[in-house]
């Protein structure tokens, strides 16, 4: 029951997206793909898909790089300040998004990055990097520090040790972090509303406007695609981790 309660609101978009009517409604007996057809033929919607994709992928790449480096740095330096630094880096998760949104707005104006790809990617990266920090730190907690010592002892400089020993061992955490970062950016709306206007028009932003200005069922179709991409990303990660577990099993 609880599960249905959690999932149903998301699933309601599916029948609504199949309505033959021109406004948001539950279909009664007859279904139609017209809203999907419109979604995939409208240049505006397609451009929003592309923009969201570009921003989400860039965010995932940047946030994963930064979050992973931060996690490894905090793992290697055991100082009384490192926990303070870690807490500081996790702040974007704790601060209400609306406050972050205002802060980004104020910050991006003088930088001239308002309503640009760079501005959105920057903002999403700041929001997503803490997620990567958390998942990679969890992987590092299980990493045997003797492996790092062994690599150094065998003559590998720090960078080689990182690339050839540490990264392969924490790969699951890095993947999970990248996935979370992608999804965060893919359906981010609060900050996006503040810092984008005409030039950059992400998918959630277009849906927001679609609902506000007219009750176009294309929004429901877009929601279905949005959910599908998110679920697809999770499915890929689940398959990857299952394969990983199976090879590990075979090795034993």
């Amino acid at each position: 029951m609880a599960l249905l309660f959690l999932v149903l609101p998301a699933l309601i978009a599916i029948p609504v997206s199949l309505t033959p009517k021109r406004f948001l409604s539950m279909p009664k007996g007859d279904y139609s793909w017209r809203h999907f057809e419109f979604l995939f033929s409208s240049p505006e919607w397609l451009s929003s898909f592309a923009q969201s994709g570009i921003i989400a992928v860039s965010t995932a790449v940047l946030a994963t790089a930064l979050g992973t480096l931060a996690a490894i740095g905090l793992w290697r330096v055991t100082s009384k300040y490192s926990e303070m630094v870690r807490a500081f880096l996790l702040l974007p998760l704790i601060i209400p998004q609306i406050i972050s949104a205002m802060a980004f707005y104020r910050l991006l104006i003088p930088l001239g990055l308002l309503d640009t790809y760079a501005g959105l990617i920057l903002a999403h990266t700041v929001l997503a990097a803490p997620l990567v920090l958390i998942t990679v730190s969890a992987s590092l907690a299980n990493f045997d520090p003797k492996l790092e010592q062994a690599s150094r002892n065998l003559g590998a400089p720090a960078w080689t040790t990182m690339r050839r020993v540490i990264l392969p061992s924490i790969r699951p955490g890095v993947f999970a972090g990248a996935l979370f970062a992608f999804i965060l950016s893919w359906d981010e709306i609060v900050v996006t509303l503040f810092i984008s206007k005409f030039n950059v028009y992400t998918l959630p932003r277009r849906m927001w406007n679609g609902i506000r200005e007219n009750t176009d069922p294309t929004v429901a179709a877009a929601a279905v695609v949005l959910i599908a991409v998110t679920l697809g990303a999770f499915a890929v990660s689940a398959i990857v981790s299952r394969q990983r577990a199976q090879t590990a099993l075979k090795e034993d």
């Binding site: 045997d144 003797k146 010592q149 062994a150 002892n153 065998l154 003559g155 720090a158 392969p168 061992s169």
Partner: peptide, 19 residues
């Protein structure tokens, strides 16, 4: 530094690279 001392080492628990 350790990486330039050129000393071999066998660690407790071996610390072989599992991957």
């Amino acid at each position: 530094p350790a990486e330039r001392r050129n000393f071999g080492m066998v660690f407790q628990g071996y610390a072989l690279f599992p991957h």
